[in-house]
Simulated assay, not measured.
Amino acid sequence: MLGPIPIRAYALCIIAGIIVAVMWGERRFVARGGQPGTVTDVAVFAVPFGLVGGRLYHVATDWETYFGPGGDPVGALKIWQGGLGIWGAVALGAVGAWIGCRRRGVPLPFFADAVAPGIVVAQAIGRLGNYFNQELYGGPTTLPWGLEIYNRVDPATGAPDSLGGVALDHTPIEIVHPTFLYELLWNLLVAAFVVWADRRFRLGHGRAFATYVAGYTLGRFFIEMARTDPATRVFGDIRINVVVAGVVFIGALLYIVLVRKPREVLPALAGDTPDGPNGEDEPKDTAPAPSDADEDGPGDRDRVVAEPGDRST
């Protein structure tokens, strides 16, 4: 608690993920030839758009919980209780990023490639919040890393409260697959793969971002099928997120295959304008494409610690 305000672990995980994504995205953006501060400026638009988009997707695909018989319409606004759909977050977050990029004169695909691995690491950090909320898990298991689920209640009323309640009985009612943990680990692998592929093939024009999307949706397709929490079903008895993951994966894969342009080179910095130091009507030079040494050298600005003991990026 912060005075009368409850501090939710889920919200803290989301905030931590955003900070990591912005800081790492800034390093990658500058290493690729961008101006410092751009990622932070764009995030001012992208983050709130993404949070709203993520919540809208969740509410739209779980409509009955909030607006069905006996539903809680006000609960649709309680984002701190969990419930963010990554599909809506990325879609509407991209709109916010487009607005920010337009204001800074940066191509959206260039920006997206720089922030791609940071976004998927942010998703991994956000998945930690599902542990505290006791949500998004799979079926029963006897594996040693199984998640223990307890019957949490409000100690004052005895009413079930899985979010803010306490476990009066310390015997778990169920031990289940922590599918959110599986997704967390998969996301870290995707981040490492995107960084490797970006360095190896010098991806540009949104291909690094598409690689992140393809990698994430591939794992999400199978992890989603292992989940047992209530979900909207389509085409008979298929979880809607399984369908969305499959469709988005195909779209991302097609983009990677069809887009073959070399990595972009940003125009000259603002100082090299027609009235700038070149003293000519048009700037002569452009910001040079960063070499491998620029991104991967001893002073590598493209490096983060993805998890304890992991020195890769």
Rank of each mutant, 00 (worst) to 15 (best):
residue 82 G to P: 02
residue 122 A to F: 03
residue 33 G to P: 01
residue 63 W to E: 06
residue 76 A to F: 11
residue 134 Q to C: 04
residue 106 V to P: 00
residue 134 Q to V: 08
residue 39 V to S: 03
residue 125 I to Q: 01
residue 66 Y to P: 04
residue 136 L to P: 02
residue 121 V to L: 11
residue 30 V to G: 05
residue 112 A to H: 03
residue 87 W to A: 06
residue 29 F to W: 05
residue 114 A to L: 11
residue 128 L to G: 12
residue 78 K to V: 10
residue 56 L to C: 15
residue 114 A to E: 04
residue 51 L to P: 03
residue 135 E to M: 13
residue 73 P to F: 12
residue 128 L to Y: 12
residue 116 A to T: 03
residue 97 A to H: 05
residue 46 A to R: 04
residue 33 G to K: 02
residue 69 P to D: 12
residue 51 L to N: 06
residue 139 G to F: 12
residue 141 T to F: 09
residue 99 I to T: 06
residue 107 P to M: 04
residue 98 W to V: 09
residue 96 G to V: 07
residue 146 G to M: 14
residue 114 A to F: 06
residue 87 W to V: 07
residue 135 E to N: 10
residue 123 Q to H: 15
residue 51 L to G: 05
residue 43 A to V: 11
residue 73 P to E: 11
residue 80 W to N: 10
residue 33 G to V: 05
residue 119 I to V: 15
residue 61 T to Y: 05
residue 53 G to I: 06
residue 98 W to S: 14
residue 68 G to D: 13
residue 71 G to N: 10
residue 58 H to C: 10
residue 135 E to W: 05
residue 144 P to M: 09
residue 71 G to H: 06
residue 116 A to Q: 03
residue 107 P to L: 06
residue 122 A to V: 06
residue 69 P to F: 10
residue 131 Y to N: 11
residue 141 T to E: 10
residue 88 G to L: 03
residue 56 L to A: 15
residue 137 Y to R: 07
residue 65 T to C: 00
residue 72 D to S: 14
residue 105 G to D: 06
residue 30 V to R: 07
residue 65 T to A: 07
residue 102 R to W: 11
residue 38 T to P: 01
residue 56 L to E: 05
residue 91 A to C: 10
residue 104 R to D: 02
residue 145 W to Y: 15
residue 145 W to T: 11
residue 110 F to A: 07
residue 92 L to N: 02
residue 143 L to W: 08
residue 119 I to D: 00
residue 72 D to H: 11
residue 29 F to Q: 01
residue 144 P to T: 07
residue 118 G to P: 03
residue 78 K to E: 12
residue 144 P to D: 06
residue 145 W to G: 13
